[in-house]
Design a protein around this nucleic acid. Structure first.
Lengths: 205, 205
DNA sequence: ATTTTTGTTGGACGGCCGTCCAATAAAGAA
DNA sequence: TTCTTTATTGGACGGCCGTCCAACAAAAAT
């Protein structure tokens, strides 16, 4: 059977199986043997393509992160204005690819184990820095630097918070709701910051 | 040694030790033997006071949840206006008791394991329902029912999102920053909803 | 003083885990 | 063909785990 160039195929197979097993049994009970069986290969394969269990989990999470990144890049390339780019980032975070039960489980498991693993922590750090700098890049064109920083943190928090609620409880049912809520926040906070610039006034009737 | 009424003392000891071990080793590596040793008792004690490991972890998380609830109730009793009550809830979620490294680890571990345990899921469900209904109760006095629902979800998401970022990365350094950000969101979203009621107008200069 | 209740110990047990490794098999190189 | 390389298997090994339990100790009840 052994053809050349199986490495990338097997790696993807094992990563896919790892995601499935993490979803079904959780990080704690996701064992090397179970992941291998799910992938349809022997348990020895895991250590042939990955140093150990930790490296497999690291590769799995990095794969999910790169999926999210690729989706965001795609949406950003179609956006013209800074406003559209911010919305593109929001939509990517709430995209269909992220609203998948297996993806939920994997990211939640990552949250639960990041404090104990520096490699997993690095993945989260990359995600946070990417999201923040992407938002900041476009927000700076719309409001002052200080307001842009606050807005970026606020939007990122809103995204993570709504995503978290959805991942944990499955509510609200409609994936459009968190998207709209984040966009509304963006609009409200942007107006507030924009008004502070003195370009418009709010007048009580 | 055995005096009467050791049960509540030992339970608290074991819960405290469980929190410490979860912080140091994570949920995965937090074993019954390690928790017992940390509490200064034999491993058999755990099964004398808790049915099994899962029940100990459940009791541990319930204890943390009741701490948060007690803090919120205390702050709410000192608040007079609906606005002050909303701020009291925000402050409780970002209170000193919640900004503790051990508490971070425990809640993150809970997030990571909730999908695989119905009892842990119940704890999260209680937290979510309590936070939402508390916010809703006061927001309804300030804006329309539909706006109150949106605002409650938004504030809850902002709290969770900022808390999550802080728990995972330890940033921003100052615990006051997330509090201010949430209050700002509350103000901005409230203004927006209030304006929709037709009581004021926004006019471009 | 004795019996009962309550608290506590520490190790035995079976089981599953991650890792390692000798053996095998097929594909490509010679 | 023969040899080398790559892919793959599946079980052995040592170790740690959660659970269970027989034994013990001391306070309370009698």
């Amino acid at each position: 059977m052994p053809k050349l160039g199986m490495a990338p195929i097997r790696r993807k197979q094992l990563i896919g199986a790892a995601i499935a097993v993490i979803h079904e049994d959780g990080f704690n009970h996701a064992t090397v043997a179970r992941i291998a069986r799910r992938a349809g290969v022997s348990s020895g394969m895991v250590h042939h393509y990955f140093k150990d269990k930790d490296e497999l989990l690291f590769a799995t999470m990095r794969h999910l992160l790169s999926d999210l990144h690729a989706d965001a890049v795609l949406r950003l390339s179609a956006a013209q204005s800074p406003e559209a780019r911010v919305r593109a980032i929001i939509d990517a975070c709430f995209g269909d690819a992220q609203f998948d039960a297996q993806v939920f489980s994997a990211w939640l498991a990552l949250y639960g184990s990041a404090r104990q693993s520096s490699s997993l922590q690095r993945i989260l750090s990359i995600y946070h820095r990417r999201l923040r700098s992407s938002l900041l890049h476009d927000l700076k064109k719309m409001v002052s630097a200080a307001d842009a920083a606050r807005l970026a943190d606020g939007i990122a928090a809103m995204i993570d918070g709504l995503w978290l609620r959805y991942a944990l409880t499955g509510q609200p049912e409609d994936p459009e709701t968190p998207r709209a809520l984040t966009r509304d926040y963006f609009a409200a906070a942007h107006d507030q910051a924009f008004n502070r610039r003195g370009k418009s006034l709010r007048v009580a009737s």
